[in-house]
Structure formats: structure tokens, C-alpha cells
Design a protein around this nucleic acid. Structure first.
Lengths: 106, 106
DNA sequence: TGAATATGACACCATTTGGTATCTTTTCGA
DNA sequence: TCGAAAAGATACCAAATGGTGTCATATTCA
């Protein structure tokens, strides 16, 4: 099911962010190749992939006896949109910081 | 305690994102003014604010009998950094989509 | 002073989360 | 053809999460 899971929720877990990164670097990877990079068992990794899939961040296809996963970054646009709203605040903060530093110099 | 809580984790909850937005629009707000915007009780909102505080996304100060909360957007830069890495993927996807649409037109 | 307001601090509870182990099915390859 | 590899499905469990209600404390103000 797509869009079932909140994207914010999907990326909250460090394991899932690492999975996204691995898929970003490798185009397409089966579960067992992904599992190697973690200390947890195959079932746990599979669950995390299901969550990513439910958020639309990952697609999969069966090839022989393995199911290969692929990154779909599109849903991350929502995060980008959301966070961009707050840019002005940390920019304002930067301006304030610069102002303070400048005053100290004088 | 600052930096105690993962920023990704802090923004995963919709209530907490709404809190950030309310603070973004209002500069400074006490707990009771914030609580009005939610269906849950005061204690629950307070807990969410503690989580935001632990992630460094919020500061607070006591004024009389109320404690006023203020947005600190700076930690969101980490999110911005993280998500910007994936921009190229949805851009590539866009390019691919445009290509397909163009082929269909011909 | 005394009531009402604002909040902190707990104790408590149901549900979700993130992991495990195990069993089954499908597929590969010697 | 038969054993091993890959993964799905499921049951289970401890801990975290997101709420609640209640009591205590500090502060305002009539």
C-alpha cells in the first residue's frame, strides 16, 4: 500500500535512513545484500523495508528467489517543502549571530 | 538536555510539527495558549514540548506563572542537509518523466 | 488572604515499535 | 533431484510512545 505510512515517520529511524542511503548508492539491491550492513537479522531489515515501501520511498520486484529493492526519492519532496519554510528562521539567526560578532569586534 | 533527542524523531509526530508551526507564527507562546490548538490535554502537549526541547528545536523561559516557548529552527538544518542529498534523484525522475511525456507526444 | 490560574511531577495504561525465532515456500545449482 | 539459499509469514516479547488523571507548587489578583 502506498502513502499508507507518513514519510516523516519513515525517515525517523536511523536504520531506515541508512537503507535509503544504501539504495541511493547502489541503484538496486536484494534483501540479503542489504542485511549485511546491519547487526540485526533479516526479518528486522525486511520490516523496515516494508515501512519504507508503505511510505512510497522504496519499490521492489522479484528476480528469481530474491526481491530487489530500489529507491524512490520522490516522497522526500514533502520533507524538503516542509523544512524550507523554516529556512528563514535559521537565516535570521545567522544574521543575528553575525551582528553580534561584528559588535564584538568594534 | 540539548541534542538528547534525534531531530528526525522529534519532527516525526504531527502534533510536534504543528507546535513548531504555531511557534513560528507567534514568536513566543505559553503552554496554555499552545494547548488550545489541540484536542489532547495540557500534560500531553507539555510532553511533546519537552521532546522538542530535547531536540533543541524549542527554548523556554518562565515569566510569572507561565513558561513561554520559542522556536529554535537551527537544528532543522540537519534535515535540510540530509534531504538535499536526495534532490538529484527526484530531479532525475522528473527528467525521465519529461522524456517519457515528450516521446508520447511524438 | 484566599480563590483561581499555570505549570510541574508522577503514576498509570493501551498501543506501537523494533527486535527475535521459527516454519514454509520458492528457486538455484551441483 | 536434492540440498542450500532467499525471502515471506507469523508468533512472540521488551521497551518506547502517546495519551490520561491527579496531586503539589508557585503566582496573580480581587
Amino acid at each position: 500500500m502506498n502513502g499508507t505510512r507518513d514519510v516523516y515517520d519513515a525517515i525517523a529511524d536511523p536504520t531506515r535512513r541508512k537503507l535509503l542511503r544504501l539504495l541511493a548508492d547502489a541503484e538496486e539491491l536484494p534483501l540479503n545484500k542489504l542485511t549485511v550492513h546491519f547487526q540485526m537479522g533479516r526479518t528486522a531489515v525486511s520490516k523496515h523495508l516494508t515501512i519504507l515501501k508503505d511510505a512510497g520511498l522504496v519499490t521492489h520486484r522479484k528476480v528469481g528467489r530474491e526481491t530487489r529493492y530500489r529507491l524512490n526519492a520522490a516522497p522526500l519532496m514533502e520533507i524538503e517543502d516542509w523544512v524550507s519554510f523554516y529556512k528563514k528562521f535559521w537565516n535570521e539567526r545567522m544574521l543575528l549571530l553575525n551582528q553580534i560578532l561584528q559588535e564584538e569586534q568594534e
